[in-house]
Nucleic acid binder design. Structure first.
Length: 238
DNA sequence: TCATTAAATTGTT
DNA sequence: AACAATTTAATGA
């Protein structure tokens, strides 16, 4: 089930609909945009495919057009630690792209996904030529820093309901993941895998959150009704 | 397009 | 972990 580096296999030019799902294109000037659109590639990643692996040289700056990815790292004892999920509209790897260093984490598809890639050289060229692009990247770095700090707090929480709530709130982040919108396409099994809980525990937590009116549970996805209420679950104990 | 069947997902124990 | 119920996707007329 788990093959390798699918983006490097069946790459193709993005369709207009896929272009529209790339949030930073709209921030570019005409010249920059034309070049970026010309250099952008997309690839289909099947469930279990690796988009990038720790230690591999940087080839692209990646973004999710559709589907769901998982960002994780390997600890020395062989276990892998999941950092976060990456839903549609999310772009990642700018840190390693900036320094042209090897990737520091694995990115794996949790389900069949469409992944876009901007060649590193074009990424640098855009940094040199577009102020809008620089703003996007800076904003991206800042927002993700906030997420990683929040993630450490989430890890310390014992209460499953709170963990699910905060993890969900992170995935609904409109700055990092503008492609998500009101409805996050994620199964309870996938969410369980991301949060590190059993599916039944996640199901229980989701039902409770739905009762609170924070979300609505739908088949194959979750609809956010009150993002503030989701985040506010920090202080709830049971 | 509709009806039937298979597959995926959810809710519950 | 296993099961039944529900929803979606696939198939073929």
């Amino acid at each position: 089930m788990s093959t390798d580096l699918s983006l490097h296999h069946r790459r193709r030019a993005p369709t207009p609909a896929e272009m529209a799902a790339i949030p930073w294109l709209a921030l570019l000037g005409a010249n920059e945009r034309e070049r970026a659109e010309h250099e952008l590639k997309v690839g289909d990643a099947l469930t279990g495919d690796f988009v990038c692996r720790i230690g591999r040289p940087v080839t692209y700056w990646f973004g999710v057009v559709d589907g769901l990815l998982k960002m994780s790292s390997d600890s020395p004892d062989g276990h892998s630690m999941t950092f976060t999920g990456v839903p549609p509209g999310g772009w990642f790897g700018e840190g390693t792209a900036l320094k042209r260093e090897p990737y520091r984490y694995n990115i794996q598809a949790l389900r069949k996904s469409v992944v876009a890639g901007l060649p590193v050289d074009t990424f640098h060229w855009l940094l040199d030529h577009s102020i809008g692009f620089n703003r996007f990247v800076m904003n991206q770095l800042n927002e993700r820093l906030g997420q990683f700090i929040a993630a450490r707090e989430i890890d310390r929480m014992a209460n499953p309901e709170v963990r699910v709530a905060r993890s969900l709130a992170a995935l609904f982040n409109p700055v990092l993941y503008p492609g998500v919108g009101e409805l996050l396409r994620i199964t309870q099994q996938e969410l369980a895998y991301l949060v590190g809980l059993s599916r039944q525990r996640v199901n229980e937590a989701l039902t409770a959150l739905a009762t609170q009116g924070a979300i609505r549970v739908e088949y194959g996805g979750l609809r956010v009704l009150d993002l503030t209420a989701l985040r506010a679950n920090v202080f709830q104990t049971s």
